[in-house]
């Protein structure tokens, strides 16, 4: 008999396996080949969204768990290492673009949905999850507030630029199983767009740092 796991203490011990026993908080079992076949038969390709979007990479497979499940440290380290290796910094060495263009990207929610025109540039939709500038009051709370991001970190030092650019490019290089999309790694934002969002976070004139 299935007992719902919300009735259980919130503390989760990593490594517990369900095996049909729902009385222990648990990791979710990986999808089997049969599960994946059912999933693929349950979706149809539409617009730019093809069925290969259901083919998980390593991080997606390892991170398909409730947030309360702690991923073992060595697994986290592996995810972060492998994602770090994907980050491509701009060849021209310039990591900061135009914060005004960055603000537009942060506001835009479209991109990669089957209902979106693939010819239209994607947005980053940063405000969906983060507070950024003080004057935009419609912001989400899935991610931390980024208000005063640059100001609180000593301004746009080379190290901070590298960190911010890399974090936008591939968040899981810094935090395994992060909820944040890997904007550069998965070709959601272009190099120039990532530079612009980096400027939004770090430029002293950006509303984020006012």
């Amino acid at each position: 008999m299935k007992t719902a796991h919300w009735a259980l203490p919130a503390v989760v011990i990593a490594g517990l396996v369900a095996a049909g026993c729902a009385t222990a908080p648990r990791e979710i079992q990986p999808v089997t080949a049969n599960d994946l076949a059912i999933m693929k038969a349950s979706f149809q390709e539409k617009g730019q969204a093809k069925l290969d979007r259901l083919d998980q990479d390593e991080a997606q497979k390892l991170c398909s768990h409730p947030p309360s499940v702690r991923i073992p440290a060595e697994v986290s380290a592996r995810i972060e290492k492998n994602n770090m290796a994907t980050i491509k910094y701009p060849a021209d060495g310039k990591l900061m673009g135009d914060w005004k263009a960055g603000e537009v990207i942060a506001q835009r929610g479209v991109g990669k949905q089957f209902s979106d025109d693939p010819k239209t540039p994607s947005g980053g939709n940063c405000y969906a999850c983060h507070q950024l500038s003080k004057n935009e009051i419609s912001f989400g709370t899935i991610g931390p507030s980024l208000y005063n991001f640059g100001k609180l970190r000593g301004g746009p030092t080379p190290e901070m630029q590298r960190y911010a650019y890399g974090r936008i490019y591939n968040s899981q290089a810094f935090s395994a199983c992060s909820n944040m999309p890997r904007f550069g790694h998965n070709d959601i934002l272009t190099e120039q767009q990532i530079k612009d969002v980096t400027a939004l976070l770090l430029d002293p004139n950006s509303p984020v740092n006012q």
Partner: peptide
């Protein structure tokens, strides 16, 4: 299967229902 699907991360944004 529904529970697995709820936590299943995929696509270019790595999103699942659980996100």
């Amino acid at each position: 299967l529904g529970e697995k699907a709820f936590y299943f991360r995929g696509g270019p944004h790595d999103f699942s229902c659980a996100t």
